[in-house]
Deep mutational scan, measured.
Amino acid sequence: TTVHLNGVTYTFPNPEEARKFVEKLAKTLNLKVEVHNGTYHIE
């Protein structure tokens, strides 16, 4: 599972880890999250 954040790409072997990371980040920084083909894009 891949996460794109400010031009940096993070790869998680575990989709659940990626989801938790994204949710925590989005909540902390009040960001918008979009998912395209299983890839998270955070703005």
Rank of each mutant, 00 (worst) to 15 (best):
L29N: 11
T39S: 14
A18K: 01
T9Q: 13
E17N: 07
K20D: 10
N14M: 04
P13H: 09
Y40M: 07
F12W: 02
E23D: 09
Y40I: 13
G38N: 06
E17V: 11
H4K: 12
H36R: 13
T28P: 04
V22C: 08
E34K: 09
H4M: 13
F21Q: 01
N30L: 07
K27V: 11
E34D: 06
L31E: 01
E34S: 13
V35L: 13
F21D: 00
K20F: 06
L25N: 02
G7Y: 05
G7L: 04
T1R: 10
H4D: 05
N6L: 11
K20L: 11
K24F: 15
K24I: 13
P13E: 11
V3H: 00
H41L: 09
E34A: 09
K27S: 14
V35S: 03
T2K: 15
L29F: 12
V33I: 14
V8L: 09
L5C: 14
E16H: 09
R19N: 05
I42G: 03
L5K: 02
H41D: 04
Y10E: 01
N14L: 04
L5E: 02
A26S: 12
R19A: 10
N37F: 04
K27F: 13
K20T: 09
F21W: 13
H4S: 08
N14V: 05
L5A: 05
A26D: 09
Y40C: 05
F12K: 00
T28M: 10
K32Y: 05
V22N: 00
N30K: 07
N30Y: 06
F12Q: 00
E16A: 09
K27P: 06
Y10K: 03
T28E: 15
V33R: 00
T2L: 14
N14R: 06
E16D: 12
N14P: 00
V35G: 02
K20I: 10
N37R: 03
F21K: 00
I42Q: 01
E17S: 13
Y40Q: 03
E43Q: 13
E23L: 06
G7N: 08
T2M: 14
E34F: 14
E34N: 09
N6M: 12
I42R: 01
E17A: 14
T9L: 13
I42V: 11
T39D: 15
T1I: 08
K27Q: 15
G7Q: 06
G7A: 05
N6Q: 07
K32E: 03
Y40D: 03
E43I: 15
P15E: 11
V3F: 03
V3I: 05
E43L: 14
N14F: 06
E16C: 12
K32F: 05
T28H: 14
E43A: 10
L29A: 10
L25T: 03
T9Y: 11
E43T: 15
E16S: 09
G7K: 07
T9E: 11
V33K: 00
T39C: 06
I42A: 04
L25H: 03
G38D: 05
K27G: 14
E43H: 13
I42D: 02
L5T: 03
L31R: 01
A18L: 04
E43P: 02
T28L: 14
T2R: 14
E23R: 04
P13K: 12
Y10I: 14
T9R: 13
L25K: 01
H36Q: 07
T11W: 12
Y10W: 11
N6D: 10
K32Q: 06
N6F: 15
K27W: 10
L29I: 07
V22L: 04
V35F: 15
L31W: 05
T2N: 12
V33A: 03
P15I: 09
T11L: 12
P13S: 11
V35E: 06
T1M: 08
L5M: 13
E43R: 08
E34P: 01
K32L: 07
T39Q: 15
V8Q: 11
Y10H: 06
L29R: 02
E17Y: 08
V3A: 03
E16Q: 10
H36K: 13
H41E: 05
T11P: 05
N37Y: 04
H4C: 09
H4Q: 10
A26I: 14
N6G: 08
H41R: 04
L31N: 01
V3S: 00
E17L: 14
L25W: 08
T11R: 12
R19P: 00
A26K: 13
T11N: 10
T9I: 15
R19T: 07
T9W: 08
A26Y: 04
H4Y: 14
F21S: 00
G38M: 03
N37D: 12
L31V: 13
L25E: 03
F21Y: 06
A26N: 10
V33Y: 08
Y10A: 02
F21A: 02
V8F: 11
E16M: 09
A18E: 01
N14A: 05
H4R: 12
T1N: 09
T11Y: 12
K24Q: 14
R19Y: 09
P15Q: 11
P13N: 12
F12I: 01
V22E: 01
N30F: 07
E23I: 07
P13C: 12
N6C: 15
R19E: 08
I42T: 03
A18D: 00
L31I: 14
P15G: 10
T11M: 12
T11V: 13
N37T: 02
T1S: 12
F12A: 00
N37K: 04
V3E: 00
K20M: 10
I42F: 08
T39H: 15
E43N: 10
T2E: 12
N37E: 08
E23T: 05
V3P: 00
E23V: 07
E34G: 04
R19V: 07
L25M: 05
Y40T: 04
A18T: 05
G38K: 02
K27H: 13
V8W: 10
T39I: 15
K20R: 12
E16L: 08
T11G: 05
V22A: 12
T39P: 02
G38F: 03
A18M: 04
E43F: 15
V35P: 02
H41G: 02
T1H: 07
T28I: 13
V8Y: 11
K24C: 15
L31M: 08
K24W: 15
T28Y: 15
V33L: 04
P13A: 11
E16F: 09
N30Q: 08
N6E: 07
L31Q: 03
G38A: 03
V35K: 04
T1V: 11
V35A: 03
N37L: 04
V3W: 01
T39L: 05
F21P: 00
N6I: 06
K27A: 15
N37W: 03
E23M: 06
G38S: 03
N37G: 07
E16P: 03
G7W: 05
V33E: 01
L29M: 12
H4V: 15
H4G: 02
T2A: 12
N30V: 08
H36G: 03
N37C: 11
E23Y: 06
N6R: 07
V22R: 01
K32N: 05
V8M: 10
T28V: 13
E34Y: 14
N6H: 08
P13M: 10
K32P: 02
K20V: 09
Y40E: 03
E17R: 09
T28D: 14
G38R: 01
K20C: 12
L29P: 10
N14Q: 04
Y40F: 09
T2I: 14
V22H: 01
V22M: 04
H41K: 04
T9F: 10
K32D: 03
V8C: 15
E43S: 14
T11I: 12
E17P: 01
G7T: 05
N6T: 04
V35M: 13
V22Q: 01
L29Q: 12
A18N: 00
L25Q: 02
E23C: 07
R19C: 06
Y10M: 11
G7D: 06
P15R: 10
K27L: 15
N37H: 06
K24V: 13
Y10V: 07
K20P: 00
H41M: 08
N14D: 10
G38I: 02
T28F: 15
T39E: 15
A18Q: 01
F21V: 01
N30I: 08
K24Y: 15
R19W: 13
K20A: 12
E43Y: 15
E34T: 15
T9M: 13
H41I: 15
T9N: 07
H36M: 10
V3G: 00
E43V: 15
E23S: 04
K20Y: 07
K27D: 12
L29S: 08
A26W: 05
V3D: 00
T2Q: 14
Y10D: 00
H36W: 09
T2D: 12
E34Q: 09
K27R: 08
E16T: 10
V33D: 01
A18V: 06
E34H: 13
L29V: 07
F12G: 00
Y40S: 03
V22Y: 02
P15W: 09
L5S: 03
N6Y: 10
P15L: 10
N6V: 05
E23H: 05
Y40N: 02
E23G: 02
Y40A: 04
P13F: 08
N37P: 02
A26V: 14
F21I: 01
K24H: 14
T28A: 08
G38C: 11
H36P: 01
Y10L: 14
K24R: 13
I42S: 02
A18Y: 01
